[in-house]
């Protein structure tokens, strides 16, 4: 297991948003993390990243507890987050976006170098000198995905990567996610509103309701169960 959450609790101020949350992902596995609006999915990913301090429980990465490991060090070890909303630097050009992140995360012998990304996502190569914030939503999301995998990711936390994308783009993006995961053994935690697309892609499904895990199983079992009851 590359990423393990054990009895995790977290929240904001006086409010506890997630509690007693446990799940794990293995190398090369895609876990869809689903749940209604406000279920605590984003909070879960942020807590795993170290952006929110857990109130109970622990996060383990490649077997090592992360309690005292700062965000920058988690990122360096390969735990990567594609954030909800804008995962790009809008005021920089596409090439500048990639260069600044590559300088910090892909120096020497990386799984995904800038060249590899331009080959993987040719749309970015065409847009190198374009201001990132002026691109279409789909192109911005491709860039966000590129920034999330640049370097040597070992576990990707993708927070609603398909938001605002046309259906054919969602298909393209998810195909890329699958390739990255299968070919390089990268684990993926995929938070999605697009339940059908997520179930089609995932190896395993976890469903949250009001901060608690209510289902953990295969996509088939999820479909067979009364899926919508959980939302």
């Amino acid at each position: 297991m590359i990423l393990e959450l054990e009895g995790l609790a977290a929240g904001y101020g006086a409010k506890t948003v997630i509690s007693d949350l446990s799940f794990a992902v293995a190398e090369g596995e895609i876990l869809a993390l689903l749940g209604h609006n406000g279920a605590g999915k984003t909070t879960t990913l942020k807590t795993a990243m170290g952006l929110i301090a857990p109130r109970a429980g622990l996060v383990r990465f490649a077997g090592v507890p992360l309690a005292r490991v700062p965000v920058a060090e988690r990122v360096a070890r390969g735990l990567r987050l594609l954030p909800e909303g804008r995962g790009i630097f809008p005021d920089l050009t596409v090439a500048e976006n990639i260069d600044v992140v590559a300088a910090r995360l892909a120096a020497g012998g990386a799984m995904f170098t800038p060249e590899a990304l331009y080959r993987l996502l040719p749309v970015l190569a065409e847009r190198r000198t374009t201001r990132a914030g002026s691109m279409s939503g789909g192109q911005q999301q491709m860039l966000a995905f590129a920034l999330a995998i640049l370097g040597t990711p070992r576990c990707l936390l993708l927070d609603e990567p398909s938001i605002g994308l046309a259906p054919n783009l969602v298909e393209r993006l998810f195909a890329q996610v699958r390739d990255v995961c299968r070919a390089h053994g990268v684990a993926v935690v995929l938070v999605e509103q697009n339940v059908a697309a997520a179930l089609a892609l995932a190896d395993r499904v976890a469903i949250m309701n009001s901060g608690k895990l209510v289902f953990d199983g295969t996509p088939e079992a999820a479909r067979a169960s009364n899926l919508w009851e959980h939302f």
């Binding site: 920058a72 990122v75 809008p90 500048e96 600044v100």
Partner: peptide, 22 residues
């Protein structure tokens, strides 16, 4: 590179945090 990194931090501080721009 440092100039671009500074502009990146100004442009999206949250992303800067999770891409190790410190």
């Amino acid at each position: 590179l440092l100039g671009k990194r500074i502009r990146a931090v100004a442009s999206n501080p949250f992303l800067a945090e999770i891409t190790r721009l410190e």
